[in-house]
Design a protein around this nucleic acid. Structure first.
Lengths: 347, 347
DNA sequence: AGTTAGCACTCAAATAAAGTGAGTGCTAAC
DNA sequence: GTTAGCACTCACTTTATTTGAGTGCTAACT
């Protein structure tokens, strides 16, 4: 059976209507609401064909049709028309990143919030993760009589700090020169780079302050490890409750439970490997609790090796068109901010 | 009408039963389930009295009774027996804080998560807030050719950092000596302390690097301001959905909406002024969306002027007894950690 | 006096029955 | 190939009926 123009037109109408109303749509509704130029009976015949092709489904005998996953797939791949955001929406999204954002965490937080506000879906964002976390700067500074602070800046200007307890705090100047020495040795190294050789070199340099070696090394390790972890931000999870498909508390709870499992979210975002926008529909998501959801993901870049992902989660009946536009716009914004004003990144 | 022993016994039984089952409890149930030594008819008479006294309520004519807010008030003030946590529970709570926690944010996050897991209620925690944020250390360090980083440590060892773009980055040594100079002038100062005099002094010291003055001052201001902000952590909001009193989606959504308003949560926690445990029941909470909830709050100390709060939110029918025990235990744990190993606090 | 058995009464909730309407598939005519 | 017409289906709504937990009151008992 061929998927002629009229069939496509009808399928599009069904999907658009269902996205808007969440109600199965019948032939009469289509005939009245959309200017298809044929009678409901004809539409009925076409719908019957579409159902045979697996693109739409009848929930029960005397109901209208709803799109199947296959139908959505066809829709997002070939039928969906992309639209521009309104100037107001663009401005809103832009205002979020243009504010005085001092920490990358806040930027992520705000971005997630903005997207979920605009779309009414749930947003998750992963902070940029460094492929190979190298140390950029290591510095010791005095805190008080019995404590000094270790500051570590990694590639990408992520800052970490650790307090080190000591018996007698070395002088400011001593700490500075120790810092410079450590720095010379560890700078540019990653965790696996730190071997016996580097440690020996450190031992030699820190002869006078041998008590510092161990805590410093430990802190450095911790830092690199943590920088290699994925940090997630989520916003608008409660929006799930606003969709009639999840008005059953047990369904909502199920999804929330899936959200709680960090691995789930990470794996969702990891699907966003390429820079393109990726769409997973229903069971294409490999998380059974989310079989009635769709996820749209993409990545944003922040320097060469550093990229994070954004994912938007909604019912399969989500507004794919809008979400894609929002994602594109927001990625543009974020990349701009991260490129032009890499101000105060931190973890 | 006197509140004799038997009435108290019956009231306690009603409240305990209702907390456990969420079902209105009738005279027959009480007579069967609890060993009160009298018949259901007698209990009925007493219940009638308790209702006259406003301690219990009949949702409708042919239903059992449920506690009124007044009833709960009496219960938590005078009737409730406190119980110990099981060793297992204690161990669980302890394991949370004893892990390798490098940042105060994570400690808070984990604590909130643990409490809400154990109690099944929603937990909010405010990070310790400094009464008067003073600067402790200010340091500049090189990043690359055109950027240096400003590190600021405030009283309480909170660390902030800002990247400053420059045309030509001064040398490491120069930055060190500039740091020491700035430090000498600003150390110990709070925001309102920074006046023309200090700025003049800075201008003089930074003659050679006048381009640094403005960004440094701006960053310092930002830092202090942000440190004076309340940072909140919330966990287990979705637990709300598990209670039959909120099984109506619209009720749940209402509460979630209230949760979204940060001011609401802050004001809840601010009620926890004293070190004691405070309990707010139903309408005692001044947030109308939360009139069917109760909140139990307390504070924890971290050094003299630094204290944060923990709040647990559940239905009015919450397990006050358990929550109080958990809170007490957890505060003990947190204070221990913050006292003995004040390691790597950060904001 | 206080307690209790007995009983009529109430009313939410569960169950059953009847009615409604949007939607379908099929047929026959255009 | 298209469409009007019609019988049929079935979720949903409405209305009626039944059920049962719980109450308050009264009269008898200790």
């Amino acid at each position: 059976m061929a998927l002629n123009d009229r069939k496509i037109q009808i399928l599009k109408a069904i999907i658009n209507d269902y996205i808007a109303t969440a109600e199965p749509v019948g032939s009469r509704t289509l005939a009245k609401k959309y200017d298809l130029g044929v009678s409901s009976a004809t539409i009925r015949n076409e719908m019957s064909d579409l159902e045979d092709m697996g693109l739409i489904i009848q929930p029960h005998t005397s109901a209208g049709r709803i799109p199947s996953e296959l139908g959505y797939r066809l829709y997002v791949d070939r039928l969906m028309n992309t639209s521009e955001l309104t100037p107001k929406e663009q401005e809103f999204l832009h205002s979020v990143v243009s504010g005085n954002i001092t920490k990358i965490e806040y930027l992520m937080e705000e971005t997630a919030k903005a997207i979920s506000m605009l779309t009414n879906y749930t947003t998750i964002i992963s902070e940029p993760i460094l492929k190979r976390t190298a140390l950029k700067q290591i510095r010791l500074m005095p805190l008080d009589e019995s404590a000094i602070m270790l500051i570590i800046v990694t590639e990408g200007n992520f800052v970490k700090n650790h307090i080190i307890r000591v018996n007698i705090a070395p002088s400011d100047e001593d700490l500075f020169s120790v810092s410079v020495k450590i720095n010379n040795i560890l700078k540019g190294h990653t965790l696996e780079d730190i071997n016996e050789h580097t440690i020996m070199a450190l031992q030699k340099e820190l002869k006078e302050y041998s008590g510092l070696l161990k805590p410093v090394l430990k802190a450095v390790q911790k830092t690199i490890r943590s920088a290699e972890n994925v940090h997630l931000h989520m916003s608008g999870a409660k929006n799930i409750l606003t969709f009639p498909e999840f008005s059953d508390i047990s369904k909502a709870t199920e999804i929330f439970r899936a959200f709680e499992e960090k691995n789930n979210l990470v794996s969702l975002l990891e699907d966003a490997k390429s820079n393109d926008i990726r769409i997973l529909i229903g069971n294409e998501i490999n998380i059974k609790e989310m079989k009635d959801c769709s996820v749209i993901t993409t990545t944003y870049n922040m320097g060469e090796n550093t990229k994070g992902s954004i994912g938007i989660i909604g019912p399969t009946r989500m507004n794919y068109n809008q979400v894609v536009s929002v994602l594109n716009e927001m990625v543009k914004n974020i990349e701009n901010v991260l490129k032009t004003v890499p101000d105060g990144k931190n973890t």
